[in-house]
Nucleic acid binder design. Structure first.
Lengths: 221, 221, 221, 221
DNA sequence: GATGAATGAGGTTTCATTCAT
DNA sequence: TATGAATGAAACCTCATTCAT
């Protein structure tokens, strides 16, 4: 092996390790912030969970808040990119909308940590993410997708007219999100396991049903 | 004025003041916990907001967690008792159900602090309220109310059959709650004011529409 | 002893103790800041030197910088109030001016800690004291005193005319201050003890001589 | 271009660059220590300002204190060598002394960073420079110069007799140095700009006047 | 019942310095 | 020679909580 090759290998390995560490910290931070909230999270716990010295966390991310913002940006990107937009666009409106609701539900159910993050962020009046420009422009395309699917359904006479895409978006997210978000509280007051496999399947069917029924229902007048 | 009178006056004033102080603390704590979450809340801020010495807080409530539990119990009672159950029962099913949704929405919209509390509580996996027996039995009557209203509608042929009251409850709360709960985050990513007077009125109409459309819609098969 | 008396005694004792502690902290802080500079000073050292828990320092003074400002304000007041202004005013101009120089010199020589404070403050571009309004207005009367003494001398034909009081003030402080301020460095490079009793006495005579010679000297043209 | 040439170029460039880097670090350190003091200075800031990796600082200078000493030695040499000694010796005593004062004043005014360094050094009781042998012997010739100029003036009947050269040296440095050293504090309490071009020129005239008046003035007895 | 004093524990952050490559 | 990773120590500060009056 030549020196040049060794050099390159070293460079690459170092870079990779560095990237790995950054990522390990981000992952640990995600879990910590999600589970304990911003104020409850401990930088030291994050470092320990990531298996690195606490100072490395500061070396990479500067301070707790910056780390939190990094975590949130990562989460928001995931939220927005989990939909297979083209898939939804090519289906007929009913299937497309059902697919949209289902993929929303499944995404949240499969990434419960995101719920904790959003919860925590919201508790602080979204003050942290407002420092992120990345997040601000993320939602426009999703609203566009909902609006166009809605329109296609209306044109085909399947969906009722006059539905506000923003309201619909809110409702979709609401029915998907709520149970998952308040699963601890709801599980306690309703004395049921609401997040077991079967329970989730039932809920998924229900929420798709709710959204489509609403869209297909014709008010008498 | 005689000494006896003074004594009585003092006694009464002290007694009243004592109750007042307890309540002032609870109110201040409610605001603080709601706005900053459990970890973000400061006992001293609560004392200052209540206009009392911090030691009084400890004198009355023992420790931060107990105070939080007291706040939560108070909140849960309010949540459950805001419905005028008999009012709903005496209406026809459609009006009754609409009334139920509307009163849910209005209650949360009018008591946003409750959202902050539930958020915070949930962030900690509902660990605090599980120490409260009071809360555990609070929701049974509400589910009963929903179930009976549903049933009346089905019997009259107005509502579809086969709807699970628990799912319906979840959906009602979801559509009412979600926007309010995530108002900061949503306002930011959707770049709209979602909690102004008009916006709330529109949302209220929409959610009632969603729930009733779902109940009235007949699946083809 | 009556209850009332006990109560009064208690109140007074507590208040006194509280004042004592505040003062003990201020004194310890003065020494620490003077000897080590703002950055070199340690809050914990201050607390230890004052014989109090470190948190009490924060309880009373909030943070390091506020404590430093308190120390500086105290120092500046002492600097300005050490002159017996009326004494100087009632003397004849020569004696008065000599008295002014001497009392300046003796004050600094007797309060070397003040030099350390001013040094430290100045190292930070006086950024801390600029937050103090108290200090800003302290020097006007001193300049007035110098100007009037100067004028009296000129009128009596003892002092030369055309001397700027501000320049004179600067020179007086300079000759009094410099040796004391740089006593460590100067002692080292000049290989002499410059702050022993005799050395100080010689310096005092010299500086008075310098100032008065300057004032009394008539430029030929 | 041949390989040999490249090699030589590299070697030469590296060697030159090495000296350059050392100097760049020293310069950056000078500025940092001067502006923030020993404790306030940050090794990393120095490295960044010098445009080198922080490890290089450690590689060249070992540790923070050694770097500081290097900076101080450099400064002291400059202080002592800024006088054109022969120039002063060849002038008549009055011109020579005026020249000495003026060049002292101008040197400090033109190298304000030195003031910061001396200030900082002095704050630590000159503990760092006491480790330097270089500095210890630097001032003897300057005192000799002052003494001989003084003597020449006395012999010519221009200067008064009995002036201690050390006192005179202290006074010269004092009047030159003080305003510059405490420019921030003084500017604040006197509410004047004291280091503008005009203000400096006025001060320079004044201090030369003070020193020469003192030397020329004949005490009555 | 009410208040100021006191404290312990722990959290975030900074920084000089060393290691390994 | 040069660089990124790593670390230990300690500084500032916050907060819940208890003590003593």
């Amino acid at each position: 092996m030549t020196i040049a090759q060794t050099g390159r290998r070293r460079g690459r390995r170092a870079a990779k390790s560095s990237e790995n560490l950054r990522e390990a910290i981000l992952k640990a931070a995600t879990r910590e912030f999600s589970g304990k909230g911003y104020d409850g999270a401990r930088v030291e716990s994050i470092a320990r969970a990531a298996g690195v010295n606490i100072n490395l966390v500061y070396h990479y991310y500067g301070k707790k808040e910056s780390l939190f913002i990094a975590v949130m940006e990562d989460a928001y990107v995931r939220i927005r990119t989990h939909h297979n937009d083209t898939n939804i666009r090519t289906h007929d409106p009913v299937t497309g909308m059902a697919e949209l609701v289902r993929s929303t539900f499944r995404f949240f159910a499969g990434n419960l940590y995101i719920i904790g993050l959003l919860n925590s962020e919201n508790l602080h009046q979204a003050c942290h993410i407002q420092k992120s420009e990345k997040i601000a422009t993320l939602y426009d395309p999703l609203l566009g997708l909902i609006a166009s699917t809605l329109e296609r359904g209306v044109e085909l006479g399947i969906f009722r007219a006059g539905v506000d895409p923003v309201q619909l978006f809110l409702t979709i997210d609401a029915v998907c999100y709520f149970l998952l978000s308040y699963r601890y509280t709801l599980g306690f007051v309703l004395k049921q396991d609401l997040t077991g496999k079967d329970a989730l399947a039932r809920r998924e069917m229900h929420v798709v049903d709710v959204v489509l029924s609403y869209l297909k229902y014709r008010p008498e007048n």
